[in-house]
């Protein structure tokens, strides 16, 4: 069974936001809800400014607080290591939203907790997640961590990729190759 992960190479992000549009379209994300977002952080004083573009989504943590706090088992870790939601079991108690340090979840108008699935329906068919497939700068890279020849494995070997909120101890599966120094 593969262990899926995503690398976001911030050096290659042009801030076109196509990932957001592709995600909403692919997953029929309800109006005013988002499974992924792009954070632009501008630091410093003019003219000495720097800007960071950071795509954020569910981190599919190996130590997922949303799964531990779910009282019904609706949030679960699937065999490929991604965190998924079983819509039939979700009661909409919002414990997972409170537990997620990345604020990756929301409640749909139907009352179900929802978030990025790494487009598991596409991955099952051998396709890439919609945001990855549409990324014009190849900033989003998706692959199998257990395959040493996969692009994600190679990038993680060759760069000093980091994760968000490392000290939270969630062991995320979304890695960031930063353009600048520490972003958090």
């Amino acid at each position: 069974m593969p262990r899926y992960a995503m690398v976001i190479d911030q050096r290659r992000c042009v801030g076109c936001m196509a990932c957001i549009v592709a995600c909403k379209n692919e997953n029929a994300v309800p109006a005013e809800h988002y499974r992924t977002r792009v954070v632009e952080v501008v630091e410093g004083e003019f003219p000495n400014l720097r800007m960071e573009l950071r795509s954020e989504l569910c981190n599919h943590c190996d130590n997922p607080p949303c799964v531990y706090n779910c009282p019904t088992g609706a949030s679960y870790k699937s065999k490929d290591g991604t965190v998924q939601v079983d819509k039939k079991r979700c009661v909409g108690c919002k414990a997972c939203i409170a537990a997620c340090p990345y604020d990756a979840r929301y409640i749909t108008p139907e009352g179900i907790a929802d978030k990025c699935t790494f487009c598991e329906h596409r991955v099952r068919e051998g396709k890439l997640p919609a945001c990855v497939a549409t990324c014009i700068g190849s900033s989003r890279i998706f692959g199998n961590l257990d395959d040493p020849n996969s692009t994600v494995s190679r990038i993680l070997r060759e760069t000093s990729a980091s994760v968000l909120l490392e000290k939270a101890g969630t062991n995320p599966r979304v890695f960031y190759v930063r353009k600048l120094g520490k972003a958090e």
Partner: peptide, 13 residues
């Protein structure tokens, strides 16, 4: 900080 896709719902916390 600007967040594209940000609204009351993308700030669920």
């Amino acid at each position: 900080i600007t967040i594209t896709g940000m609204n009351a719902i993308t700030h669920p916390h």
